[in-house]
Design a protein around this nucleic acid. Structure first.
Lengths: 127, 127
DNA sequence: TTCCATGCAAACAATTTGCAGCAGT
DNA sequence: ACTGCTGCAAATTGTTTGCATGGAA
């Protein structure tokens, strides 16, 4: 049976309160300010728990550390290949697209959450 | 200037010839059968090179090792959250969706390649 | 002969895990 | 009191890198 923990609450709040899709390390550093004793292990363990419970989304970005995102409503992510920044967006998945995906894959359940990679304005301008 | 290498050709062919989205380790093991001297370092180095050249796609799947995919034409990936299996599919990104994404994010350039997570038939049946 | 690519092993980064003590029920 | 959660450190995993040697131009 699961038990309340201050640390877990703090991890959750930290994600909820920012819109910046923090990494585990960033969350750890942030919580360390208020509670210098907190350990990375605890942060990782709680992140995994929160993801399992569906309260938090894990966004994985090839090579770079995972980012975490508060789940309020289903939405999609646009990731810049260059700087790794994540932008939220919403698209509506109409029945046509949805059944087309089902027809082409073995995936049964999926929600309105896509990931797309590209290059963001500021990285494009730098080149 | 870049130089031809047998190993790079083998890595590329290995990805081209299978539709199974192999991991670096799987490619390494596969090539090791014919060439027992090949090293992981070489496989990784060549995979990165091929990705940079746009000949191969890297599919990243949170925590689990990256998978690699031959690029023939742009397509999307549906990944089972449970078993990690990757399915290819195609959807057409109409102008409406495309400009909606641009309006909501800072992403400028992106192609017809989405990633979506879900649960595949066989994993769903196991539950 | 030049210099990129290799094989090998060591290094690295992100994350997980084992354990003894602590905290929530 | 019981058992899950923590902090800590060591372990694991996936990947990168430094270096001496080998191979393509």
């Amino acid at each position: 049976m699961e038990k309340y923990s201050k640390q877990r609450e703090e991890v959750f709040n930290c994600i909820k309160e920012t819109k910046l899709h923090p990494t585990a390390e960033e969350i750890y550093m942030n919580l360390k300010l208020k509670n210098p004793n907190i350990s990375r292990g605890t942060v990782y363990r709680n992140l995994n728990l929160l993801v399992e419970k569906g309260l938090v989304n894990k966004i994985s970005n090839s090579g770079k550390p995972d980012k975490f995102d508060y789940v309020c409503k289903p939405h999609s992510h646009a990731i810049c290949k260059v700087c790794g920044k994540v932008y939220d967006f919403e698209i509506l998945l109409d029945d046509e697209i949805s059944s087309s995906i089902k027809a082409q894959t073995e995936l049964e359940e999926f929600s309105n959450e896509f990931t797309i990679y590209g290059i963001c304005k500021s990285c494009k301008n730098k080149k």
